[in-house]
Simulated scan of single mutants.
Amino acid sequence: MTTATSYARFGAREAHGVSPAYERLALAVSQDDELLALLAALPPAKRQPNLLFAVVRLLGGPVEDPAAFHDYAAANWPAIEAEMRTRSTQTNEPGRCAVLLPVLATLPQPLALLEVGASAGLCLYPDRYAYRYGEQVLGAGEPVLDCTATGVSLPAQRPEVVWRAGLDLNPLDVTDQADVAWLDALIWPEHTHRRTRLRAAAEVAAADPPLLVRGDLVDDLPALAAQAPAGATLVVFHTSVLYQVPAPRRDAFAALVRGLPGHWVANEGPEVLRYDGLPEPPSGAHLNVLALDGKPLAWTRGHGQGITWFG
C-alpha cells in the first residue's frame, strides 16, 4: 500500500465519523505531493498518520486546518522528522478495558495480567475502572468507561487482578510529565472526554504502578510471564499493537504465546491477525477482532467505545 493510499484509507475508515479534523488532514495529505515526498524519506513504519499528526500536536502545530497544517509541516519538517524517527504510536487508551472486560471476567480468578505493547500500562487496571454499558453500570469511581454492547453477556462484577505487568520497547511513565504529554498528543483533537479519561486513569496507575519491562514481544515474553504468581491465571493480552510488528515477528509471537500457560486475549485488526469464517462486520468503520486463545468472539471499536459479540 502506498503512503497516499494509507492516508486516504485512514481518513475514510478510521477517522470518518470519529475525528473530522483528522479525516480532513488525512485526505489532504494523501493528495499533497510535497508532504508525501517528505514522508517517503522515513522508514515505512514511521509514515503512519497517527504518528505524524500526534508529533505536530506535540510540537504545538495546527491540526484543524489542512492548509495551515501543510505550511507548518513544510516549514518545520526537520523537527517533525526527528520526533517521528524516535517516537512510536503508543496510544494508551484505557477505554479498551471495556471491550476486554467481558472476556476477562469469565476466566478463572484471580488474574495475572501481562500486556504486550503496554505503553504506560493504563489497560492493566480493568479491576479499578468503572464501566457504563448503556443502562448497566459496573463499579464506581473514575474514570467511567462508556461502551455500547450488542449481543454480549455482561459481567456482574469486575475481575480480580493480583499481578499486573507490561512489556514494551519503550515503556512510558505516568509520573513523568513529558511521557504524559506524548500520551495526550496521541489523543485525537476533538476527544476531550478521552483526555479527561487519560488523566483519571493515569492517577489510578500512579497510585499503584505496574511492573513495566523494556523488551521485545518474542525475546523477553517468556521470562516476564514466568514471574506471574502461582495460583493466578496468566492472561497475556494486547490491543491495537501488532500492526506495528513485521509479519514474520507477529507469527513468531503468536506461536510463542500459544505455548504459554494461561490464556491469550487479542484485540487487533482482522488484517493483522487473520481468522477464518469471520461474520460480516456491523459497520464500515475500522474495527478490531476480540479473540480468546485464537478463537474470534467479537467486533470492537478502536477506542473501546463499542463491542458486537458473535462468538
Rank of each mutant, 00 (worst) to 15 (best):
E64A: 01
L111Q: 04
E81M: 11
T89E: 02
A105K: 05
M84R: 06
E83M: 13
G95W: 00
L107I: 12
N92T: 08
G60W: 04
D71S: 14
G61M: 11
A67Q: 09
L107D: 06
L101T: 04
P78E: 12
A75K: 11
D71C: 08
V63Y: 03
G61S: 13
A82T: 12
A68F: 05
A74V: 15
A68G: 13
A79P: 06
T89M: 05
M84I: 14
P108F: 06
L59Q: 10
I80F: 09
P78Q: 10
T106V: 10
T86K: 08
P110C: 06
D65W: 03
A73P: 06
A67T: 07
A74N: 10
A75E: 15
P108C: 09
Q109C: 12
A68C: 10
L59N: 10
C97Y: 01
L100F: 11
V63T: 01
L107E: 04
E81S: 15
L111E: 04
L100M: 13
H70N: 07
A75W: 04
A67D: 11
P62N: 03
E64C: 02
G60M: 09
Y72H: 15
H70I: 06
A79S: 15
A67E: 15
E83D: 12
G61K: 05
A98T: 08
P110H: 03
A74R: 15
P102A: 05
A67K: 00
A98E: 02
M84K: 08
R87F: 10
A82I: 03
P62Y: 00
R87G: 13
L104M: 13
L111D: 04
P102K: 05
L104Q: 02
P102S: 07
L104V: 04
D65R: 00
P78C: 11
T91M: 10
L100T: 03
R87H: 13
F69R: 02
P102Q: 00
T106Q: 14
P108Q: 07
E93G: 13
L101Q: 07
L101M: 12
A67L: 10
L59M: 15
L100Y: 01
H70M: 05
N92S: 13
A68I: 08
L104A: 03
A79R: 14
C97K: 03
R87N: 14
P94W: 00
E81I: 08
P102Y: 02
P62A: 06
L101A: 11
V99G: 01
A79E: 15
A79K: 13
E64L: 01
A82R: 12
V99A: 09
E83K: 07
C97T: 07
N76Y: 04
P94E: 05
L104N: 00
R85Y: 06
Q109M: 12
P110D: 05
A79H: 12
D71W: 04
A98D: 06
L107K: 06
D71Q: 15
T106E: 13
A105S: 13
E93A: 14
Q90P: 10
N92K: 08
